[in-house]
């Protein structure tokens, strides 16, 4: 067993069939139970990193390694990475008309079960789902709705958190889960994440965000800043305050870096 839950080592990646790397050597480690916030301006590569960790087929990894529990996952398909414990909360969740959340989640839960275990019983599944709905204070009727079909921004993000609760990942990557949410929706989503963290204190979280706003509700242990495809700075929670005050520009000056490695 590795000391680290997730290790991103010198990862370079580009959009398939395009010439230049978007990620230019990303290094990041997450231990069990840690929450890391990844901040940075638009286009710095934050969302690309999230997709590369989840195995998006549109990106090509041109160098480096990504390990989960010490095992290289770069060769794994997205579904295999999910079953290994990775969860990506999407910035833009897909709409799947005609498929209920409940049907979708049952298929996803069954996909994680071994042949010996067989499919989960209908009642067992319903009980598990109801429990999570209750935990996240979501109305039961939510599960009968079609996946993200006609959902508001807040409902889509709440659906991401519900899926996370049902799939119980060891490593969750939340990609701009806070964007496009009003303050009430933001609080509901953040409460959901905190509730799940209380239930599973060994879960690792990588929280990708644009704004400091969500950090009033979620308390990361570390904050990283990504600039131009690399982690430019890392620090404790106080780094977020500095970014709020000073923006990102000062980070371009290497000698001005005030924060050491964690």
């Amino acid at each position: 067993m590795s000391e680290y839950l997730l290790e991103v080592k010198g990862v370079h990646a580009r959009v398939e069939e395009e010439g230049t790397d978007i990620l230019k050597g990303v290094d990041l480690v997450v231990r069990p139970g840690e929450m890391h916030a990844l901040m940075g301006p638009n286009g710095s590569g934050k969302s690309t990193l999230a997709k590369v960790i989840a195995g998006h087929p549109g990106y090509e990894v041109t160098g480096g390694e990504i390990l989960l529990d010490g095992e290289d996952i770069l060769e794994l398909e997205p579904d295999e990475r999910s079953r290994a414990g990775i969860f990506l909360a999407f910035q833009y969740p897909a709409e799947i008309p005609g498929v209920s959340i409940s049907n979708f989640l049952r298929t996803a839960v069954n996909a994680r079960r071994s042949e010996d275990e067989g499919d989960i019983g209908v009642l067992d599944f319903q009980m598990a789902l109801n429990q999570k709905l209750e935990l996240l204070r979501v109305d039961k009727s939510f599960a009968a709705r079609h996946v993200n079909d006609g959902f508001s921004g807040g409902e889509k993000k709440r659906n991401e958190i519900l899926q996370m609760a049902m799939l119980a990942p060891s490593m969750a990557v939340l990609d701009e889960t806070d964007s496009g949410l009003d303050i009430d929706a933001l609080r509901i989503v953040a409460d959901g994440v905190n509730t799940l963290l209380e239930a599973d204190r060994s879960m690792g979280v990588l929280l990708i965000t644009h704004y400091k706003r969500i950090l009033e509700y979620l308390k990361p242990d570390f904050v990283h800043v990504m600039l131009d495809g690399k982690i430019a700075h890392s620090g404790g929670p106080e780094l977020a305050d500095q970014l709020e005050e000073m923006g990102y520009d000062w980070l371009h000056e290497p000698e001005a870096a005030p924060v050491g490695q964690p």
């Binding site: 549109g58 990475r81 999910s82 897909a94 709409e95 799947i96 996803a108 996909a111």
Partner: peptide, 13 residues
């Protein structure tokens, strides 16, 4: 493809 990636990222083959 976006729908497919979304579903496979939840563990569906």
């Amino acid at each position: 493809e976006h729908q497919l990636f979304y579903l496979t990222s939840r563990g569906l083959t």
